[in-house]
Nucleic acid binder design. Sequence first.
DNA 1: TACCTGTGAATTGCATGCAAAGAGACACTG
DNA 2: CAGTGTCTCTTTGCATGCAATTCACAGGTA
Lengths: 263, 263
Amino acid sequence: MPWREIAYNLPCCYGPGIMSDHTPLREADNGHAADDAYRLIREQILSGQRSAGAWLREGELAESIGVSRTPVREALRRLTAEGLVRHERNRGVQVQAWSIHDLDEIFSLRAVLEPWGCRLAATTGTIDVDALDALAHRMDEVAPDGRPTDVDELTELNNRFHRMILEASDNSRLAGVVSSVIQMPLVWRTFSRYSPDALRRSLAHHHELVAALAAPDPDWAESVMRSHVRAAWHSIRLRDGGDRAPGPELPDQVSTTAGQPPL
Amino acid sequence: MPWREIAYNLPCCYGPGIMSDHTPLREADNGHAADDAYRLIREQILSGQRSAGAWLREGELAESIGVSRTPVREALRRLTAEGLVRHERNRGVQVQAWSIHDLDEIFSLRAVLEPWGCRLAATTGTIDVDALDALAHRMDEVAPDGRPTDVDELTELNNRFHRMILEASDNSRLAGVVSSVIQMPLVWRTFSRYSPDALRRSLAHHHELVAALAAPDPDWAESVMRSHVRAAWHSIRLRDGGDRAPGPELPDQVSTTAGQPPL
DNA sequence: TACCTGTGAATTGCATGCAAAGAGACACTG
DNA sequence: CAGTGTCTCTTTGCATGCAATTCACAGGTA
């Protein structure tokens, strides 16, 4: 069967012969179309360029990114699995919309999982306390007196801080579950909602966590982390008109292990 | 633009013109190639037809299922996101291999999440106790005297029992997280590893859970569920040569809420 | 007006073919 | 004999085009 098209596929990357004039994104083109698509679309969602409820058209995305629809589809399926977008058969994909109820679900889950992970990290004792301490101090610098100079960097440092603790818990699924669940608050651009007081308290918690993990005292670590998460929950809700306390379904202490004197 | 191929795509489903003689699967063909591929591949993995470490070739799967490689790729990406298979760029996809350590991770997570969910279910009080009770009794019938007559049905009933409780917790993410995490034990074909004694105890737990949720007494419900999960953990490990107790990292009681008299 | 019905445009679903990346075999070189 | 280049074969990655579905909207009927 003869095939007459000459350059059916171009030699390497950079898709179809004719390309629209607005340069395709793919800044740090690493040669993996699907990965690029995933990263770029995800960024656009988290940065708010694509707002909740907006439809993501495969064709439009493919053109703007500079790849064909195939890798875009793959990226969209991945984002669907992560819960950032919703997929309806034969209709397309739209950016997931979040409600206060979602926020409550997420924080009540965090308020169970993160303290537990923190306890585990204190128990295994395999955490690099110095690195953790460095992160905490770096955050102080980025947010002197509770006023952040760079919200993005602060968020990034905070994520690394929490991730480091969870990874020391020796339960990789725990770390995976938490990070899959806390995607949404990123959309909320968490730290920009903190009052200076709340932010100062949050940073103080970090230092206290370092101390509890250095001790190491699992009860202390778990308890500080629970305070930390619940305080964050309040800080975010308060800015949102929602002034009732975070869900009554979560008692003040969910998980207290008996006894064991401090130190 | 002339197009000479006649049946380039066949009118509806059922892929390419020439099809190998061994009938493609797609038993309950619902007309959605990607979904069919996902379901069939998943079944083959869970049933053990594709054993851990085996490579899943897109071409082979596509042919055996009776679709093209595109929907197979989509199914494989989905399974990757769920952790059932591993994907290596340009090399392919292989069935995930599990270790005792994975089992411990999963059960220690369950031992935190399911009791908490059970507490929530008892607190919201929105659970259909009668339906739950019916499931518990049905399980008695399928496993009279701790000897299952149909392991598959028993597993299915058990899954429904636990899912029903988690869905009553009013935290959809909790249900999602648990079900995404407990895929692996399915591979272990859990109930076939239970001794008659262990299975009897497990079924008794179910009835006790119904009672605790009917009361409703959140402390009781939470506590029974914790026993239930930890007992299951032991039952599975004991059959595996591993005779040490499930990870010391999880104290016997992870989450005890103070006070509140029974009833 | 309310309710079908049909037509067209936009968009996804899927099959296919080429190009590129690995894996293994084998000869060649130091 | 170990290391290295090259050749081939297998398999994935991606671009593309047709088919099918959905939606909006216009026109016909009660």
